[in-house]
């Protein structure tokens, strides 16, 4: 078991406690999507896994050890543009290695591999302001995988992209993690994104937050997204999850007011 959030309690000031004994487990190499309405508390779960937030009670285990403080064995990618605008793509991607004190020769070697993996090889000396939205996403992806963390935490990483670019990035993300064998905890409110990417979908809703349903996605690791989209299984799952998400949304909203 790679990530083990066990019977965790957590809440924000002056609010109903959001998590009251919530548990979540992610296996080595598993791609788990957390699907739920906006504002239901998905990002809180991710920040607990990243160690940016600490549970009031209960524990978070990562790689078999209890987590104290920040979790530096994860890659962290959010919707925002968190590239450093004054540094080139190459400098940005190798930043985690530099901060971890990896020698320069080794950094160069890893950079070569990473930029090829995300198709940014010829843009490595550009500044972020010279990149398109899709290229920025690729750079962020490369930066979050370059230090080989066993798990990627992704909070709607492609939320700001247009539909076409998002499809491209979906396939690239799948190819990348298929090659690296990393686990992914992927937060989204987009149903098709969850079906296309995940091995397991966890539908969340309500206050306190609870699991409404857990679904295994049967397409396997080396799926071709253009083919997946045309299958009947995909269409059925989408209808089912849509209904479920509507329920989750109503549940979350009724408790918030």
């Amino acid at each position: 078991m790679l990530l083990d959030i066990n019977d965790v309690h957590f809440g924000y000031q002056n609010e109903v406690e959001l998590l009251q004994g919530f548990s979540l487990h992610v296996e080595q190499g598993e791609f788990v999507a957390l699907l739920g309405p906006s504002g239901c508390g998905k990002s809180t779960l991710m920040n607990l896994a990243a160690g940016l937030l600490n549970p009031l009670r209960g524990g978070v285990n990562f790689g078999g050890h209890p987590l104290h403080g920040l979790n530096r064995d994860v890659g962290y990618m959010t919707q925002g543009d968190t590239l450093l605008p004054w540094a080139t793509v190459a400098k940005n991607i190798t930043l985690p290695l530099e901060l971890r004190g990896v020698p320069k020769a080794q950094r160069e070697e890893k950079l070569d591999k990473a930029v090829r993996l995300v198709n940014l090889a010829e843009h490595r000396n550009k500044y972020p302001s010279e990149l398109s939205g899709g290229m920025k996403r690729r750079a962020l992806l490369a930066r979050s995988i370059i230090y080989d963390p066993p798990m990627l935490l992704m909070d709607e990483p492609f939320g700001a992209l247009d539909a076409q670019l998002r499809e491209v990035m979906h396939q690239e993300l799948l190819n990348t993690v298929a090659r690296t064998g990393q686990s992914v905890l992927f937060i989204t409110h987009d149903i098709s994104e969850a079906i296309l990417l995940a091995d397991r979908i966890i539908v969340l809703g309500g206050l306190p937050l609870r699991v409404l349903e857990e679904t295994e996605v049967p397409f396997g690791k080396d799926r071709k997204l253009s083919e997946v989209r045309t299958t009947k299984t995909y269409a059925d799952m989408e209808v089912h999850l849509r209904e479920l998400l509507r329920k989750a949304d109503a549940l979350t909203k009724s408790k918030q007011h």
């Binding site: 990243a50 994860v74 962290y76 450093l84 901060l99």
Partner: peptide, 26 residues
């Protein structure tokens, strides 16, 4: 300075001094 950026850089491995010098100051 965006808190998201600071969180990302901390997870990448930056200590408070590095966050100040590499992110906040620039």
């Amino acid at each position: 300075v965006s808190q998201e950026l600071i969180a990302a850089v901390r997870i990448m491995g930056a200590n408070p001094l590095q966050v100040a010098l590499r992110v906040i100051v620039p």
